[in-house]
Design a protein around this nucleic acid. Structure first.
Lengths: 179, 179
DNA sequence: TCAAAAATGTAGCATTCGCTACATTTACGA
DNA sequence: TCGTAAATGTAGCGAATGCTACATTTTTGA
């Protein structure tokens, strides 16, 4: 965790869990404080404002996720685009990962409206995703394609049409070949 | 507008505009009522509850959008997957259409959390999109691919990385050829 | 050791939320 | 015309929101 005091880090972990379980939407100060074993009073004291707090929580979640990704894909660079997409898509459906993807979608739709700091966070995470994808592809040129399509898979899944997502993975794999 | 009384329809139009401008997030009863020239009291009276009201608003917006889409693409069936994606993507960036896409993303991330009625609405809209896509494709098998990738484009755009989206359109077009 | 600073508890403020009770007005059918 | 039902206004309830004022405790450094 970067730019975060030890005290803040200790609070952020359980709050991150809370947000993953309940969404940014329901992340108001009092429930967050309860999850972290403190009070709304202290959250403002330590983070300054709710906006700053949410920003810190999101960065915390993002860090965990990229750390987890790099761990499970250690030494698996230079994969086929189709293979990488399918592997990442499988992981995204995991009970452990799906809440993270949900929050990520929630963040983007929030960033779309209020821009500014929220969008900066979203852009940072997107950049991290892209860089990570490039590292694991045989042809890094295809990173934006794989990443973008993956985001589409998330949307279709959360819209309740995981079947469409699945079909699209098959179709894309077919048209990509083994590049 | 289906299953909606004349009175409701007259209220829904300006409320739809309000939601497009301010998001579902900020769509609370009093502002909505003000936009529609009535009172929160009357909104509950006419629609029963806020949930029912939001459902009606979303269906209203979805109807407008599919009507607009079929209008601008009249007589343009059997397009290449790459062509259709590019055309739809251009339209999605239009100042008139982008708010609609934003609300659509907002809806999916909301549906992801509270499921039930919200997800039913999202599924209905997604089905409508898929059917519309199939009609306009030379190869309807590619509908799920085009639709899913389009959703990905939306996410990347709202995350502030429209450049990645653009690259992915180019890459996908290349790998799709003229099918 | 002791004063200054950091950390925490208690209580509340002002606002907004969805929703409702109650009263009143308007419109329509017999 | 008149009684009934639909429609609307007024006022407010109870809960939740982010945040703050004030007092108190705990820690720290000289």
């Amino acid at each position: 965790m970067k730019n975060v005091t030890a005290t803040q880090a200790k609070l952020l972990a359980p709050m991150g869990q809370f947000v993953l379980a309940n969404g940014l939407q329901n992340a108001s100060l009092r429930p967050l404080a309860k999850a972290a074993g403190t009070s709304d009073r202290m959250l403002i004291y330590h983070f300054g404002s709710k906006d700053a707090l949410l920003a810190a929580i999101m960065r915390c979640i993002a860090d965990q996720m990229t750390a987890g990704l790099t761990a499970t894909f250690a030494g698996q660079e230079r994969m086929t685009a189709a293979d990488l997409l399918r592997r990442v898509w499988e992981i995204a459906q995991t009970p452990a990962t799906r809440p993270v993807m949900r929050v990520w979608l929630e963040l983007t739709s929030m960033a779309a409206r209020d821009g500014g700091a929220t969008q900066d966070i979203a852009m940072g995470i997107a950049d991290g995703f892209l860089a990570w994808t490039q590292v694991h592809l045989k042809d890094p040129e295809l990173a934006s394609l794989v990443l973008t399509h993956f985001e589409g898979l998330l949307v279709m899944q959360e819209a309740g049409r995981a079947d469409i997502a699945e079909q699209s993975v098959v179709a894309l794999s077919k048209s990509l070949g083994d590049s």
